[in-house]
Design a binder for these strands. Structure first.
Lengths: 204, 204
DNA sequence: CCCTCAGGTTAGCGCTCGTTAACCCATTTC
DNA sequence: GAAATGGGTTAACGAGCGCTAACCTGAGGG
């Protein structure tokens, strides 16, 4: 029989392909037949693994939001505990983690801020809550590094930097510099953006 | 009879409501009946003004892209001609224009990078071409201000800053600082992001 | 006074989509 | 060796969609 890891493969395979298709053509733009075809089964076979199309999107979005949040918390705990490098190191770790995610799971990042409104109310509330906690985590760290920033502009700045970091899906692959170069570029830009936000706030 | 400007009002009204609805729930998520209802007529009455639902989206996207490009070109010509303030002033003008657009036409900005793939091939090609020219305009100006930046990272940086500036639709309205404060914040962040990108490039 | 016509209306067609029903077949379990 | 079960199939249904057809109306223009 299939091993434990093989048994979960089919579900994960479906989720992965669904994420790609949803990101490419939008939730309403892809049919269940296409998702099935992408994993080699056809149409209603998916209903052996998921109660419906909505459930796939919900599981994807909840998974992404949760992963981002727990990963961020882990990094804050780790980088904060050592206290080597000061609060700046914590922010660097957060940025690095988000960049890794944006570069490695591009379809998921795309879905994350594009298809939230297609969820059932309860799922949407959950995802929103996870997202909000993730933002608050960032806001605290950013204000630790830049105490001149009041909370509302800090929150706006965090959202803006998310926009910056999540811009990678818009770039056509071949024109990009290498992955590490891109990551370094985005990292520098994020830090610079925060620094300038703090400067502007201090001046005003 | 209706005057010339009144005659165009209904069309514009439809486009405006369609943009809002498309941005809120996605192109496939909105029916023609809803668009009609939003302007006080119902369903198929829209076909007196547009050949189809696709045509509304196409007109919106082409309009946005064209407006951004011509506005950008105008600003480059104006700010570049005076030569007062050097190349930095040109970049500031570009940033300012983009921020105005992002803050004043939030649904359009959302559509702009979200629903491009729902267009007919010819329309999509046109929009892509306009977008590319707009990016190239920015790349030239940015490299004028930061000559250390090679072209590929400059292009990536421009895309990233677009993501930053276009993040405003994600922010819930009431929590934002005032419009001018938000604009100033975004402006500072954009400049800082470019500067840091150039710094990082010079170091590498 | 009729004609035209812009700009609506409602009814309904045809298609696509998500979902269910009914059936099938390996493989495991007792 | 039968029975149960996981994972798949095809057929078909019902709803919703974009769009067309056919009809209506009120305001100019000759």
């Amino acid at each position: 029989m299939a091993t434990r890891t093989d048994a979960s493969t089919r579900r994960e395979q479906i989720l992965k392909e669904a994420a790609r298709l949803f990101a490419e053509r939008g939730f309403h733009g892809v049919g269940v037949d296409e998702i099935g075809a992408a994993v080699g089964i056809s149409g209603p076979g998916l209903y052996r693994h998921f109660p419906g199309k909505d459930a796939m999107l919900a599981e994807l979005l909840v998974g992404i939001s949760g992963q981002l949040l727990t990963g961020g918390r882990r990094r804050v705990a780790e980088a904060g505990a050592g206290a080597a490098g000061g609060p700046g190191a914590v922010l660097d770790s957060l940025i690095e983690g988000h960049i890794d995610f944006a570069l490695d799971d591009r379809p998921l990042i795309t879905l994350h801020d594009r298809e939230l409104d297609r969820l059932r109310d309860s799922d949407r509330k959950l995802v929103r809550q996870l997202q909000r906690q993730y933002v608050e985590l960032w806001v605290e760290v950013v204000r630790d590094v830049h105490p001149e920033l009041a909370e509302p502009p800090a929150r706006a700045a965090v959202h803006a930097v998310f926009g910056l970091l999540n811009s990678t899906p818009h770039l056509s692959r071949p024109k990009l510099p290498g992955r590490t170069a891109t990551a370094a570029l985005l990292h520098a830009m994020a830090r610079g953006a925060f620094a300038s936000a703090a400067e502007a706030a201090a001046k005003a």
